[in-house]
Design a protein around this nucleic acid. Structure first.
Lengths: 119, 119
DNA sequence: TGAATGGTAAGTCATATGGCTAAGTATTCA
DNA sequence: TGAATACTTAGCCATATGACTTACCATTCA
């Protein structure tokens, strides 16, 4: 069993920063050129571009350049692997709770039988 | 509008490493002491403890020490903020698609009217 | 009590991250 | 063509991350 998945690494990594999450939320509303995107952030442009790169590395956005303008767009479905992973964990957790529940039920039944046999 | 949420920062950060995700998957099946948890990983114990700390910082696990053994357990519901954030993005994205759809529909209607008036 | 067990603490190291400035390139507009 | 625009590149800096070793408690078991 391999526990290495570079996709999830860079995906979650990209999501771990407030600036980058804000960029994504903005892009969920529609594509935008770099300078428009950058405007609300008090940050030098090269720093901001670094964040865009991380988002691109994480597969969360796509950018295309036409003329001197680079337009950024969210990649639909890019968040799905993250969502799936989280759901899997929950599934594991819940199947465990189910088994635990079965076990407790069984224990209680045995106890009941035991008690009854004492009567 | 504030775009800073330290919870999501450390949560996603915690999830961005394969070792830590593997630990979580293991813990979803039930609690375990540090040494048992660490056993499958080819890593010095102090390094491993570092990962546990990141998971604890991200609110994903809880640990308790009794005697010389520290037991780690998953914190149920800890993944929910991450899941919610992802779902919100999707909601924004989809409402945008809806509006886009309305727009296209309107455009096509106008075009149809235009064409008709030419006849 | 003395040794083995299970973690902790302290300190080092290399690389990554996140920010900056200053200077450069490529388009577009006047 | 010359100036403004929209990035891009290069390089610097401080801190964080992820791994290591060595040494140090505290418990438990023989």
């Amino acid at each position: 069993m391999t526990y290495h998945s570079p996709d999830l690494d860079s995906l979650f990594q990209a999501l771990s920063d407030p600036t980058r999450r804000a960029i994504l939320t903005r892009l969920a509303k529609g594509p935008a050129p770099v300078s428009a995107l950058a405007e609300p952030f008090e940050m030098a442009l090269p720093s901001f571009m670094g964040h865009l790169k991380r988002l691109e590395d994480g597969g969360l956005i796509e950018t295309t350049k036409s003329g001197r303008v680079r337009t950024c767009a969210m990649r639909p479905g890019a968040l799905e692997p993250a969502r799936s992973w989280i759901d899997e964990q929950r599934a594991i957790w819940e199947s465990r709770l189910d088994r635990l529940d079965d076990y407790v039920t069984k224990l209680m039944k045995e106890r009941a039988d035991e008690t009854r046999s004492k009567d």
